[in-house]
């Protein structure tokens, strides 16, 4: 493990799976882009994405807090932060769990 595939490799794998269908490689590449763009906008908007068997994405808020300038020690207010969060679905979680060490 530890190696990753890239977006273009994923597109190639998808293209191989759709070979012989009506979908061209540019349809596939455009579809991947549309899915990613729509998912990004959804998360950024604070809405939730739920893909059954895969997982869900939400936007989590970290509360505003007082920080400090490390040089002067002066308190600095830090605004609320938002970060996307992915929770693997039950299927994915259960199936990947036992692959440990492989």
């Amino acid at each position: 493990m530890k190696d990753s595939i890239t977006r273009s490799e994923l597109i190639n794998i998808l293209a191989a799976q759709f070979e012989g269908s009506e979908l061209s490689k540019s349809d596939i590449s455009l579809s991947v882009r549309e899915i990613i763009n729509h998912m990004s906008a959804t998360i950024a908007n604070g809405d939730r994405i739920e893909i059954r068997g895969f997982g869900s994405f939400t936007l989590r808020q970290r509360n505003p807090r007082m920080g400090r300038n490390p040089k002067t020690g002066e308190p600095v207010p830090l605004g609320a932060k938002y970060a996307p969060h992915f929770k693997p679905g039950k299927d994915l979680k259960e199936q990947v769990k036992d692959k440990v060490g492989t």
Binding site: D3, L92, V96, K99
Partner: peptide, 21 residues
């Protein structure tokens, strides 16, 4: 198929990098 393929890669021990996401 998009999500099944990502899942299959993860189960095969490969991370998946989706640039832009």
């Amino acid at each position: 198929v998009f999500f099944e393929t990502i899942k299959a890669q993860l189960l095969a021990g490969h991370g998946v990098k989706l640039s832009g996401f």
